[in-house]
């Protein structure tokens, strides 16, 4: 009986907690409707397409290929990114560069974002700092799989 009473008290306390949440949040919602600015908000929701959360500085977003001053990609096709990529989504092909100091440059650099898991290993592995994932682009969805295969021109942008 006493135990049952204890439950009963807990039951009431439980609904008081939810009621308190409701009341407090409602209060701030009403203040907002009335146009009164408060530090606290009624909800933690971020209204996504209109509001956007600021990405962390280390956030890994869409890749980009860094270029030299003359606009050529920095990549020297060492294929370390290809080696380290756990989802095997990078394909690079080398070509001869006329400059003997550079020698090797990519004729193809393709990242298949269908497969990419955004682990950032390619960025870690790159000895030339040629690939970075700091574009801040996270909305990269496409209707067509083919559109998610990014080639050198697309990655240089």
């Amino acid at each position: 009986m006493i135990r049952a009473l204890g439950y009963f008290i807990e039951i009431i306390r439980g609904s008081l907690i939810t009621a308190r949440h409701f009341m407090a949040n409602m209060f701030f919602h009403i203040l907002k409707v009335l146009g009164i600015k408060t530090k606290r908000k009624g909800a933690v929701t971020i209204q996504y397409p209109e509001e956007k959360k600021e990405l962390a500085s280390r956030h890994r977003s869409l890749h980009r290929i860094m270029t030299r001053e003359d606009g050529q990609p920095r990549c020297v096709v060492c294929m370390l990114c290809v080696t380290v990529c756990p989802s095997e989504c990078i394909y690079v092909e080398a070509a001869e560069d006329p400059d003997p100091e550079i020698q090797k440059r990519p004729s193809q650099f393709v990242i298949d974002l269908n497969r990419c898991c955004f682990c950032g290993f390619c960025v870690e592995a790159c000895p030339e700092d040629a690939i970075r994932m700091d574009t801040g682009k996270v909305e990269i969805a496409q209707y067509d799989r083919q559109d998610l295969i990014y080639d050198l021109d697309k990655l240089k942008e």
Binding site: H21, F22, N25, H29, A43
Partner: peptide, 10 residues
């Protein structure tokens, strides 16, 4: 709406 407000949502 009520559940949302209880949950700090919108």
């Amino acid at each position: 709406k009520e559940s949302a407000i209880i949950h700090d949502r919108i």
